[in-house]
Computed example of a mutant assay.
Amino acid sequence: MKNLIFLVTLLLFAACGTGKKETQANGAISVDSLKSEVLSIHDEVMPKMGELRRARKDLLFLADSLMETDAERAAMLTTVADEIDAANESMMQWMRAYESEFEGTDEEIRQYLEDQKVAIQKVKDDMLGSLKKGKKVLED
């Protein structure tokens, strides 16, 4: 009986240790780690979607109210609102295109995730940049 318990315990420890390491022998980041980085960037900016939509709505409302008295400022506000809309849409497009269960060789998966990391970082930069610009314009 003791041998059976020991064997089961040994098998459990062995099963727990079969996951992919964070860094592989050649120094490359693991697929799991890359996937985690991609999703972390997404999760960081996803909550800003509501804030983006609110800022866009506020900009368009202000632009509409200024249309007859200050057409130049109204046009600028509309342009910033369009930038916010484009950033919001880029997140939506990225989410629709992202394949969480992408299949291929380890190298193909790694390349896919590297590409997705670059893409979602650009989405993040666009979202945060346009939101910052929108807030600044609304404060002026």
Rank of each mutant, 00 (worst) to 15 (best):
L12C: 14
L39V: 06
I5A: 14
E139L: 08
V123L: 00
K48R: 11
L11Q: 10
A15K: 07
V31S: 08
A55C: 13
S33C: 10
V123H: 01
K117V: 02
K2Y: 14
Q116M: 08
K21A: 13
N26L: 04
S40A: 14
A86L: 13
T23L: 05
N88S: 13
I109K: 07
E139W: 02
Q24D: 04
D70S: 11
S90D: 13
D85S: 15
S100F: 12
R56D: 03
G134T: 02
V80R: 01
R110F: 03
D125F: 01
E72I: 11
Q24W: 06
E108C: 04
L4S: 15
Q111L: 12
N3L: 14
L113G: 06
A74R: 04
A74T: 10
Q121D: 06
K136V: 07
Q24H: 08
L62K: 15
Q24A: 00
L77Y: 12
D115T: 09
L10W: 12
E83T: 10
K35W: 10
K117F: 12
G104L: 01
M76N: 09
R110E: 07
D106C: 00
N88T: 05
A75K: 09
A75W: 08
G104F: 01
I29M: 10
K2A: 09
T69M: 09
I109L: 00
E108T: 03
S30H: 01
E89D: 07
V137F: 11
D43P: 04
D70E: 11
S65M: 15
L60Y: 08
G19I: 09
M1W: 07
T18I: 15
K35A: 14
L77Q: 08
L52V: 05
H42R: 12
E37R: 13
E99H: 10
Y98T: 05
V80P: 00
A25P: 07
R96Y: 11
A86K: 13
A14N: 07
C16I: 03
V137Q: 10
E107Q: 11
L52R: 03
I29T: 12
M95L: 13
Y98D: 01
